[in-house]
C-alpha cells in the first residue's frame, strides 16, 4: 500500500498535466471566445484585449505560457472577473466549498458507518431491511431534488434555517445534508456488506470463544477490516462530493468554487476553468493519497507489501 501511495504521488504530475492539457485544448477547440458575450465590443478593443491575454497567439504557445506560469505557481488572471487573479478567486471560494464539503463528508462517514454497522449487527432483522431499503432510496435521491425539498421544509415552512446564501455556521447545514445524503447511503451499504462478511469470519468465532462481549467483537475485531472498503470508497466519494457541490452551491446560492466553474465554462473564462479543474484534480489526488496511507495503517498485510 505504501508502494501504491508512492505510485500515486509519482503519477500525480503526469495525471494533472493530462488533465490540464485536455481541458485546455478542448476549450480552445470549441467555438466562441471569452469576449463574445459583450456584444458592443469594438474590434480594436477586442484585439487589444486578446493581445493583453495573449489570445492572439497559437494555442500551443498559449499552453506553453500557461504551463510556464503554473510552474511558478501562477494560475494567471481571470478573463472575466476584471483585475482578479484565478488564484485569488479560488482562494475566496475554497474555504466556503471546503466547509460544506467537510461537513458533508463527516456526516456521510459517521451516519453511514453507524447505520451500516447497526444493520450488520441485526442481520436480516427488520432494522437491517429498513436501513438497506432507506439506503437505496438515498442513492436514488439526487441532491438537486433533496436540496429544494430541504429548503421548502426547513427554510420556508419551518423557518429554522437560512434558505441560502452564506451567513454563519447555520447556512452550512442544509447544503451539507443535501450533499451528504447519497454518499451516506453508499457508505451505509458498503459498511453493512463488509461488516456482515467480517462477522462471519472464523477469527470472529475465535473471539466469541474467548468470551469477549459483542461490543468488543464489533468494535475491536470486526470494524477495522470492515472499514477498509469504506476507506477505499472515500476517494470516489470525494470526487462525488465535489461534483455534487456544483449543484448544491447553485441551489443554495453559496459563493463556493463550484459556481465559478460553471460560470467560467459558460463565459469561456479559460484560465478560471483550468484553475478550478487543476485545483479539484490536485485535491482528489491528494485525497486518494491520504486514503492509500490510511489503508496501509489499517491493514497490517498491506503495510508489508
Amino acid at each position: 500500500m505504501l508502494n501504491r501511495a508512492a505510485m500515486r504521488l509519482l503519477t500525480a504530475v503526469p495525471t494533472l498535466f493530462v488533465l490540464v492539457g485536455l481541458s485546455f485544448f478542448l476549450m480552445h477547440a470549441a467555438p466562441g471566445g471569452p469576449f463574445d458575450s459583450e456584444r458592443s465590443l469594438a474590434p480594436e478593443i477586442e484585439a487589444r484585449l486578446a493581445a493583453q491575454f495573449h489570445l492572439d497567439e497559437p494555442a500551443w504557445m498559449q499552453f506553453g505560457r500557461y504551463l510556464g506560469g503554473l510552474v511558478q505557481g501562477d494560475l494567471g488572471p481571470s478573463l472575466q472577473y476584471e483585475s482578479r487573479s484565478v488564484a485569488s478567486l479560488i482562494a475566496d471560494g475554497a474555504p466556503v466549498s471546503a466547509a460544506v464539503g467537510a461537513a458533508a463528508l463527516l456526516l456521510a462517514l459517521i451516519g453511514g458507518v453507524a447505520l451500516g454497522a447497526l444493520a450488520a449487527m441485526r442481520r436480516d432483522g427488520w432494522l437491517d431491511r429498513s436501513v438497506m431499503v432507506l439506503a437505496l432510496v438515498g442513492l436514488s435521491l439526487p441532491s438537486y431534488v433533496v436540496a429544494p425539498v430541504l429548503i421548502l421544509v426547513f427554510a420556508l415552512q419551518l423557518p429554522w434555517l437560512p434558505a441560502g446564501g452564506w451567513d454563519g455556521p447555520a447556512s452550512v447545514l442544509l447544503p451539507a445534508v443535501a450533499l451528504a445524503l447519497p454518499q451516506l447511503a453508499a457508505i451505509a451499504r458498503l459498511t453493512r456488506g463488509a461488516l456482515g462478511e467480517v462477522l462471519a469470519a472464523p477469527w470472529i468465532r475465535t473471539a466469541r470463544a474467548k468470551g469477549l462481549p459483542e461490543r468488543l467483537i464489533v468494535f475491536r475485531h470486526a470494524l477495522k477490516p470492515a472499514l477498509l472498503p469504506v476507506v477505499s470508497w472515500l476517494g470516489p466519494a470525494a470526487a462525488g462530493l465535489m461534483t455534487g457541490s456544483v449543484v448544491v452551491e447553485q441551489v443554495f446560492g453559496i459563493p463556493g468554487i463550484g459556481r465559478y466553474f460553471v460560470q467560467g465554462a459558460l463565459n469561456r473564462d479559460y484560465t478560471l476553468v483550468l484553475g478550478v479543474v487543476l485545483f479539484y484534480g490536485a485535491l482528489v489526488i491528494a485525497f486518494n493519497f491520504l486514503v492509500d496511507l490510511a489503508y496501509g495503517a489499517l491493514d497490517p498485510q498491506a503495510r508489508l507489501e
Binding site: A201, P202, W203, I204, R205, T206, A207, R208, A209, K210, G211, L212, P213, E214, R220, H221, K224, P225, L298, D299, P300, Q301
Partner: peptide
Amino acid sequence: GRAALDQLRGSRISMVFQDPMSSLNPYLS
C-alpha cells in the same frame, strides 16, 4: 445467556479451532 457464557468462554472453557490460518484476526497483533 450470553453474559453467563462469556464468563466461562475463554476463562474456564477454551477452544482451539481447526484452521490456524484463519482463526486469528489478521488485523490485530
